[in-house]
């Protein structure tokens, strides 16, 4: 593969992580809660694709969206609503527990061996062969992410609903005082999370057609790293952070030799620690942005 090929692949993986990061960022913006359970919604979506393997592809995908959105809403009612007003950290800990429990649930229900999902495997075929080696899925990845993120941007900045969402994100209690129906805004946020989870579930199963129990946590932890690096307080930066982490990971994966590659995880997390200590508002935040620190 050439440099162009590496770059395109890196963009594609970055786009995938940007989609996960934006869901984490969205929930944090609206509720100041950390949605670690988003990963398990994606896993649930991926498993649902396996369950629906005999259905027509289009129907399976539509149902996957419905299932992910429903799952996301169930989590909002069962976990996030009772935790309103709790600290962000408390939500991190609780959703960590929820994710861990759900992972075990997948183990019980679907077994330890992973489930093959090969419905869209054709997308792995190459568009341009040879040195660049561009696959269809790469294009679909980038296209879907661009569409979703662009749509979200339009929703937030060009619609009345988006205005309300931004109001809630900026000042929760004042938004209520001016009459923003908070529950609707929260519901919309979780619907968006569910939709993005479905997109990730579909794209991820194309690239890795074997769904395992650890799918959710492994993706969400990397995305969370990106969110923290970019800046949790700012949706755009959080998303960009997710993209960068995916991008760099993919690039390093193509460049580094195997025996050094294994330590990329360590380097990434070391970087996270350094950023948290030195620039707690995130790498992408402008200088001077303060963050609670006791």
């Amino acid at each position: 593969m050439t440099v162009v090929g590496y770059l395109v692949n890196a963009i594609s993986l970055g786009a995938l992580y940007a989609l996960i990061a934006v869901s984490v960022g969205l929930v944090f913006a609206v509720l100041r809660q950390i949605n670690l359970a988003q990963g398990e919604v994606m896993a649930f979506g991926a498993y649902s694709l396996w369950l629906m393997r005999s259905l027509p592809i289009w129907l399976a995908i539509v149902l996957c969206f419905a299932i992910c959105i429903a799952g996301s809403l169930v989590l909002q009612v069962a976990v996030f609503r009772p935790l309103r007003g709790a600290s962000a950290l408390a939500t991190l800990i609780v959703t960590f527990g929820v994710s861990y429990g759900l992972e075990a649930l997948w183990l019980v229900v679907f077994g330890p061996n992973g489930k093959p999902v090969s419905m869209l495997i054709r997308l792995n075929n190459t568009v341009i062969g040879g040195a660049i080696a561009l696959r269809w899925i790469t294009i679909v990845d980038i296209g879907a992410a661009a569409l979703l993120l662009g749509g979200l941007y339009a929703l937030l900045f060009r619609s009345s609903l988006g205005l309300r969402m931004r109001a809630v994100a900026e000042d929760f209690s004042t938004a209520r005082i001016v009459g923003v129906r908070i529950e609707r805004v929260v519901t919309v946020a979780f619907v968006l999370c569910g939709a993005s989870a479905a997109v990730v579930a579909v794209l991820e199963t194309v690239q890795t057609p074997l769904v395992t129990t650890t799918l959710g946590l492994s993706l969400i932890v990397v995305a969370l790293v990106g969110v923290v690096l970019g800046g949790l307080d700012h949706l755009g930066r959080a998303t960009a952070g997710g993209f960068i982490v995916g991008f760099v990971n993919s690039l390093l994966g193509s460049i580094l030799p195997e025996q050094q590659l294994v330590f990329v995880t360590s380097l990434t997390f070391l970087f996270v620690v350094i950023v948290l200590v030195v620039r707690p508002a995130g790498l992408l935040a402008p200088r001077g942005v303060g963050v609670e620190r006791v």
Partner: peptide, 20 residues
């Protein structure tokens, strides 16, 4: 403490997110 026991308004309580 707000850290592990979620309910309490510690230093980490998000601004304006009142318990309902």
């Amino acid at each position: 403490p707000g850290t592990i026991a979620g309910r309490s308004p510690g230093a980490e309580v998000p601004l304006g997110a009142e318990p309902e």
